[in-house]
Nucleic acid binder design. Sequence first.
DNA 1: GGAAGCTCTCTAGTCTCTAGAGCTTTATAT
DNA 2: ATATAAAGCTCTAGAGACTAGAGAGCTTCC
Lengths: 137, 137
Amino acid sequence: MYTIGDLSRRTGVKIPTIRYYEQMGLLAAPERTEGNQRRYEKRALERLAFVRHARDLGLSIEAIRDLLALSEHPERPCGEADRIATEHLASVREKIAQLRKLEHELKRIVACHGDHTIGDCYVIRALADHSLCGNEH
Amino acid sequence: MYTIGDLSRRTGVKIPTIRYYEQMGLLAAPERTEGNQRRYEKRALERLAFVRHARDLGLSIEAIRDLLALSEHPERPCGEADRIATEHLASVREKIAQLRKLEHELKRIVACHGDHTIGDCYVIRALADHSLCGNEH
DNA sequence: GGAAGCTCTCTAGTCTCTAGAGCTTTATAT
DNA sequence: ATATAAAGCTCTAGAGACTAGAGAGCTTCC
């Protein structure tokens, strides 16, 4: 039996966040003591670890809810779970591509090195004038 | 003179967002008609383009406010503007590195291709068991 | 049995918008 | 000159995923 604080320490998920996950339906409402405090079993710890891991990977609460629902029907085909993960992989790749563009642009922008005054600072000019960009976004 | 709708069309920034930027102090409150509608000058258009561009690059509203404040004192040295952009470049690079890790992990996870049942689906197992990850995060 | 430390609920705040209700103004067409 | 359509106004609330704080009530340990 774990207290909510135990769960928090073991998973690194903050206490209010654990309660929030319960509210969002990612964790089952656990038993309570006579004094109304939550007491968790080991399964809850594993489930929270799952949720945390999935959030770390950037899956939305909704996607996680879907995966959890699926995992409760282990007899069904898992094409759906695969689809969720694949879709997410695509969105991660897109984000990477976008950030790479930004990296290039910022690298070009960071070029005044503090030895000018703002009047001719490239940072300001580049931000003001999109046409200096070289790529569209 | 532009209406708020003109500004929106020309910059691609939605109307409520323009009003929000005004509220946040990124845009000066423009003149109003007798009927209380906003009428903008060309400078406002340029400024909005600056803000939009900076937001596209992922700069926070606060960072943009700082840059704008700086740009109003063109006689000062621009080391500060450079610092803001450089700092942001570092954070973009960090995000890219993180997302790359996620990409690898998801790629490994997406491996069950719908030809199993969920009971032995790698997606679910990998998310449940962090130790399958191969890297820490 | 008393103090320290945990936990409870509830409310409100974060950030950057976005959407809608209900109303007023402006522009265009006749 | 007037009718109507399109655009604008303010204000409120919602999104997503938490986070923080108030004020009260439990548990544990010496």
